[in-house]
Amino acid sequence: MAKLTMVQALNLALRQEMEKDDRVMLLGEDVGVDGGVFRVTDGLIDIFGAERVIDTPLAESGIVGAAIGMAVYGLRPVCEIQFSGFTYFNFHQLESHAARLRHRSQGKYHVPMVLRAPYGGGVRALEHHSESREVYYAHTPGLKMVIPSGPRNSRALMVSAIRDPDPVIFFEPKALYRAFREEVPEEEETLPLGVPVKVREGGDVTLVAYGAMIPLSLDAAEVLKAKHGIEVEVFDLLTLSPLDDTLITESVRKTGHAVVVHEAHRSFGPGAEIMARLMEEAFFYLEAPVKRVTGYDIVYPLFAREKAYMPNAMRIVRAVRETLAS
């Protein structure tokens, strides 16, 4: 097994799916000759040609609208939007058509496309390059919303996303693109969409996170164990929509305590939905209010102040200790 970064693992997923299935196409700004601004599609144009790795004009709605047409025709387009902060240009194509064509045509057509976009902060970027607005897509019926947290699961989820018969919004935590390497098998590996995974076992408190918050949450869990003897059970959502709360609810029934972590804004964020599900499914097992460690409800600051905005392991440790103390 090779040790790959997330960028390399995603590249592997795209390459292997394109080798296996000539319906799989890539399109986006600078995805061909340049290999994508983060190099996720590096080298693919050399293998598959400009017919299948399409450098498009600079127009996000155009990219997604054309991908919808391709998908309806029977191809499996994977489009890259250079940063999630520019997906608003194409939002109406996703909401008005990708999400609805199956229903509108009463099953005649479906839109098996993937929209890839780097999201999230902590990389000292320009304005519009650090946001975490996955709830827009998770809130939209007809779409699936997937966010990996490491090289190995990003590869497995990407393969599943490409093969999924419905449109998948695939946000890649850009802070993790090259943050660490993992063993990624050359052989095919998939992960089911819509199923969270337990990434750490523990009996004292349930911690729910996803994407770039997973390494922080695991760091926090280590500190909590080492310094405070607290055993944290950590769940990685992997898919925000459809959200399956079964494992999380079960865990909270055991621990009686929960903390949700995301860099997305707090109000109406993924944490709000998870807390609501816990109220519905595990209210009588809760021993303390559920806590949220999140981005604040403000415009994402330019990077001189982003450290104070972004959740970190220390904030998570404090939140866990507070919920256990209350």
């Binding site: 609208g65 991908a67 919808i68 047409g69 391709m70 998908a71 191809l75 109406h92 058509h97 057509y109």
Partner: peptide
């Protein structure tokens, strides 16, 4: 395609379909 109400949005789908026809 079924009718499309959001004005002009369907023009892109025709382009994508045509691009796929060209590829095929």
């Amino acid at each position: 395609l079924p009718l499309a109400i959001p004005v002009s949005s369907q023009t892109l789908h025709a382009v994508g379909i045509a691009m796929a026809m060209k590829y095929r």
